[in-house]
């Protein structure tokens, strides 16, 4: 399953209006580590259907958004709940770490 690509407009709308928490990966095409995470994300998306909304923001295309969200390092994953960022993780080293991050941030 492909990740939902978010521009600023879609990002704003999703974070503000989504009934479920939104997990956003900030990434860029040149980021070799982001590429390594992609196969795990495919599985994470299918395991979290309906539970959370998952999307990604290309920080090269969305510089202003990346700056607003204070993204300094990529890949950074941010969990948004009720329109607010509630947790983030930088460069998780395994699918298990991504799962753990989702479980822990949803429990907040």
């Amino acid at each position: 399953m492909e990740m939902l690509n978010m521009n600023k407009e879609l990002f704003d709308k999703s974070v503000k209006e989504s009934e479920v928490p939104v997990l956003v990966e900030f990434w860029a095409p040149w980021c070799t580590y982001c590429r390594r995470i992609a196969p795990a994300m495919t599985k994470v998306i299918s395991e979290n259907q309906g539970n959370i909304l998952i999307g990604q923001v290309n920080i090269d295309d969305e510089e202003e958004l990346a700056e607003l969200e204070k993204i300094e390092i990529i890949p950074t994953f941010v969990m948004y709940k009720n329109g607010k960022a509630i947790a983030s993780i930088v460069a998780p080293e395994s699918k298990a770490k991504i799962d753990e991050f989702i479980t822990e941030s949803l429990a907040k």
């Binding site: 590429r35 390594r36 995470i37 795990a40 699918k95 298990a96």
Partner: peptide, 9 residues
Amino acid sequence: KLSAGGQMA
């Protein structure tokens, strides 16, 4: 744990 390739990826 993540994706194929290991260090070479």
